[in-house]
Design a protein around this nucleic acid. Sequence first.
DNA 1: CTGAAAGCGCTTACAG
DNA 2: CTGAAAGCGCTTACAG
Lengths: 348, 348
Amino acid sequence: MRKHTAGQAAALRLVDVAERAGVSIATASRALSGASGVSAEMAERVRAVAAELGYVANVHARSLASGASPGVGLVVHEIGDPYFAEIASGVLEVADAHGRMVQICHTGRDPYTEVAQLRALVNARVGIIVVAGSGHLDPDVQSQMKAQVQGFEAAGGRVAVIGRHPQLGVDAVVPANVAGGRAIADHLLGLGHRRIGVASGSRRLATMADRLAGVEQALRAHGLTLDDLPVVEAEFTLDGGKDAARRILDEHPDVTAILALNDDMAVGVLSVLGERGIAVPGEISVTGFDDVVVAGHLSPALTTVHLPMKEMGRQALELALLPRAARPRRRTAEQQLMVRASTARVRG
Amino acid sequence: MRKHTAGQAAALRLVDVAERAGVSIATASRALSGASGVSAEMAERVRAVAAELGYVANVHARSLASGASPGVGLVVHEIGDPYFAEIASGVLEVADAHGRMVQICHTGRDPYTEVAQLRALVNARVGIIVVAGSGHLDPDVQSQMKAQVQGFEAAGGRVAVIGRHPQLGVDAVVPANVAGGRAIADHLLGLGHRRIGVASGSRRLATMADRLAGVEQALRAHGLTLDDLPVVEAEFTLDGGKDAARRILDEHPDVTAILALNDDMAVGVLSVLGERGIAVPGEISVTGFDDVVVAGHLSPALTTVHLPMKEMGRQALELALLPRAARPRRRTAEQQLMVRASTARVRG
DNA sequence: CTGAAAGCGCTTACAG
DNA sequence: CTGAAAGCGCTTACAG
């Protein structure tokens, strides 16, 4: 007896369609999957019957039989974070257009959790994986990531990453983090700032390394290096930004600007400056990075580096939808400096 | 020959574990799924072997054989929207804790797309569906939703919704939208505002109806009704807020406050007021609804109604994880008025 | 408690 | 081009 007959919901099966169309399930299967080896009229008839009945293939049966899966897995650090939410939006848009479902995983910003989520996705037999978090500089993390990814691709899976993942060897959409870091630091230096506090996330992340490298390039043109600046590491979040701001202000009360390595941190920085009654940009200038949607509406409107997050999400999935290339593809996502109200010429 | 032997990634199967443990696959299956009918030591041995080998069951095979699926589907209007991103974060957190993967779907705010996504999820054979968007007042939409949901639950699926969905008859987490609407309108009225423009999303949404009903309750205490106010319908987004603000200002230049029915719209309203050089709250007060994370950091900090979005996401999935009850459960998510800098006593 | 066997709903060589 | 049959990796009555 069929399962689920308790409800009226018992889904149609391929046999139902085949019977109604007067063909074998083999023919019905081929017609529906668009495979060759069926006459045009036969295929048309089967498809018409399927459409009429509202038949949709059971993905589990299909995946089990074919070994392939249409599912796409998306790994983000934290979906509540606007940066990842906007990327996810782009991924969903493209997935939708291709009739694919996306499974989404949190890592909570822990690299080993990321490896575990990757494994979970592989076990869930998705056909494509998009990793939206930055690569990690730790060799142990890298090799574990690489093992998962290679196993997955060897089995026919496709993966694309957003951000630089050293050594991973897969298709990637790489934001212009170095150029962005250079641009935002140049902007601050051009306004006369020299005592710049940097609010950074974990420096083990490739994203952080790249943004800092850009900052360093700009500094060098002015005879400075990062070592001359207070660079404070904290969580790469709003609360982390608060934390970093407090430490910068307490230990280096003479800073005239705080350069946060993402907008979330910048919001936290603004919040602490507000609490302490420090005027922005009157007394201290503040910058962010990413340009999340609300950045232009903050108090004050945030000077930051724009990155096209949604587009990055779209491109990553599009890359992964392409057949695997002999050598990994790489798309660069351009940055753009957005000068707004949170920065001004250095005081005094 | 086994599939996938091209790569080293050929996943282990239950037979591999069973062989290694010296038992039948039936016993191995029972041991691993925690079913009864296996001796404790046998079960322990099998589990040890599975752990050692790193075996994870193929979800597709398992779902196909058992008819049940551990997957959870999440339907949101737009994942790039902070309201839904925060809800999703809560859902993912609980899903993670239960070892379940979540498939996420966009509706683009279209009710018929929502029905279609529901159907897609049912076809994907998830075991649980969480619908995060507001219910719709259109009877045709309601009956289509209901048909999908009932079929799904009849087949053993579980669904929970966030927001009021009239007639749906499923477990629900319902935010205190009426009370919130009353509170925010009361606040404005208490400050002396009478000419209040309302920036609303589609009034076909239950959420909108409820928030407006709350506003109306507050108005009545002052001898007013909604009909006395300019209520402008637009997209329930930042751009929709801009649109609504322009129409309100152009057609009713005498308003002293604009009450937006969510924070996204409020941000758009603030943006237009800024463009036109209208001081907030000096000339016009502005309020939002939801209290997304950045609301307190906007320019000016937004007076709004706090809703615990992440917690709502958690609760919804927790409800859906429970066995179906005789009558639908309902949890209320409390609101809290957050008075910040965007509202002030009416001028002159 | 344990195992042999049927079956879940598909796809895909293999014949014809 | 079409179909009968094996097989994908599990679960679950059914015997023992």
